[in-house]
Design a protein around this nucleic acid. Structure first.
Length: 424
RNA sequence: AGAGAGUUGGCGGAGUGGUCGAACGCGGCGGUCUUGAAAACCGUUGACUGUAACAGGUCCGGGGGUUCGAAUCCCUCACUCUCUGCCA
């Protein structure tokens, strides 16, 4: 959530930023918000003044009672009654105004970093770099959804039976490959200085608001209504919420955590022709990296995360490219996002396998995640996260790109994790 | 799930209607002393809001109520602990 002081002091930049992010009616909404803010502060001043009067009278009554001046005390009491009425009315106005401000603030997305290119859709994203060789597949090469049937390693029909579409069952070398990738990703993250955590995969409403999935993406999460808990769409939610409501000692920064979790996404309305096989699932596994840093260090941290993710792709020998997302394609909460895409050779498509973002203070403001600067003032920290990596599309690319007529070669780094070198 | 107890500042722990933002201890910070350090002693030490800066206001698990006045009384929700039950 944006900070009101920023709206107040840098109104024009805020509006320009919202526009860049393709937010409609930015100027009007910001003006309305500032109006409400003005109103709130005025009401609060009036309310506080009455409260002050009531407080002094209550104290006066107390000492009158002690010194035995009953009648005088009674007279004061009738006076306070009126004061109370007024205070109550103002308090109600104050809280409704505050609620309005809160709601309006929740609706505003984060502001984009200055390096974010203008644009509306994925077409406008900027390709930062491309790396790795695009393989030449043999005649009759298969897309991964046929390969998994041929080698019987992932079964969508079974998943349909047990749960429904988008919940595949991984089998044999397919299951083994999943486990190998998870371990490989975690080991690499740990080697890069991240601490491994295993968080809950159901979270409460407060956590959903903390990282910004609520209220924006309400319909995208599975909701266990009996207990009002949400299945996480990404480990970002529980891992970042570890630090909700904390003032972190500076010497503990930067915080670097990693974790593997299943992720659940309803993907309401986003199913179409391009989502066959592993391209889009309701449940998938992902290793996430999360950082909490000082404001002045966060972009350096984002670079570091991007390098880490690229390192994984290089070790897996996958051709990939890095995109700098344009304003219109970035997520609600991000200031700057790099997407990593791998080339899935049989489909002939780039598939998004990672997204690394700096949220600056947007999440920290909701989370109340802060530190004390040199002068002892509490200030918001910056939060970042990235997938390192999401499994299904990595699996799709590995299968498609490395297929031969008599099996699928596994990347060398995975051999020790897999216990085999080829799916056959 | 049933019965009981509890939830206070970074931590421990007082406080059952009036000047309590909260005793005391520990920890942290600053200082005295010391060649330096420890010990000892002195001082200081929460968050939010608000203001140009003061002032002022709010916060003792969350929400609501009683009262001139609530950390203290009442209601409600959440969580924690102990015992019983169930269970990977």
């Amino acid at each position: 959530m944006l900070q009101l002081t920023v709206l107040r002091e840098q109104t024009d930049q805020v509006i320009a930023g919202l526009n860049k992010k393709n937010y409609k009616n930015a100027a009007e909404e910001v003006a309305a918000l500032l109006e409400l803010d003005q109103q709130r502060r005025q009401v609060q001043n009036e309310h506080d003044e009455l409260q002050r009067q009531a407080n002094t009278m209550a104290k006066a009554i107390g000492s009158l009672m002690k010194s035995g001046e009953r009648e005088k005390a009674e007279a004061y009491k009738t006076e306070t009654a009126e004061l109370k009425q007024k205070t109550k009315a103002l308090a109600e106005l104050l809280s409704t105004t505050e609620a309005q401000i809160q709601q309006a603030l929740y609706k505003l997305p984060n502001l984009p970093h200055e390096s974010v290119p203008a644009g509306r859709t994925a077409e406008d994203n900027e390709v930062v770099l491309q790396n790795g060789e695009i393989p030449d597949l043999h005649e009759g090469a298969l897309p991964h959804w046929e390969l998994i049937q041929k080698y019987d390693i992932i079964d969508f029909e079974l998943g349909n039976k047990i749960t429904g579409a988008g919940f595949p069952v991984y089998k044999k070398q397919g299951a083994r490959l999943q486990r190998a990738l998870i371990n490989f990703f975690l080991d690499e993250a740990i080697a890069a200085g991240y601490m491994e955590v295993q968080p809950p995969i159901l979270v409460n409403e407060t956590s959903g608001y903390g990282t910004g999935q609520l209220p924006d993406k309400d319909g995208q999460m599975y909701h266990a209504t009996a207990d009002n808990l949400y299945l996480i769409p990404t480990a970002e939610v529980p891992i970042t919420n570890i630090y909700r409501d904390t003032i972190v000692p500076v010497e503990q920064l930067p915080i670097k955590n990693t974790g593997h979790t299943p992720c659940f996404r309803r993907e309401a309305g986003s199913w179409g022709a391009d989502v066959r096989g592993l391209n889009r699932l309701h449940q998938f596994d992902k290793v996430e990296i999360v950082q909490v840093t000082l404001p002045e260090k966060s972009y350096q941290a984002l670079e570091e995360m991007s390098d880490h993710i690229q390192g994984l792709l290089q070790k897996l020998e996958l051709p990939y490219r890095v995109l700098r997302l344009c304003g219109g394609d970035m997520s609600f909460t991000a200031s700057l996002t790099f997407d990593m895409e791998v080339y899935s050779a049989a489909q002939g498509r780039w598939l998004e396998v990672s997204s690394a973002s700096n949220f600056e203070t947007y999440q920290a403001n909701r989370l109340k995640l802060r530190y004390k600067n040199e002068s002892g003032k509490t200030q918001l920290l910056h939060t970042l996260n990235g997938s390192a990596l999401a499994l299904p599309r990595i699996v799709a690319a590995i299968l498609e790109n490395n297929q031969t007529l008599d099996g699928i070669n596994m990347p060398k780094v995975l051999h020790p994790y897999l216990g085999f070198e080829k799916i056959s």
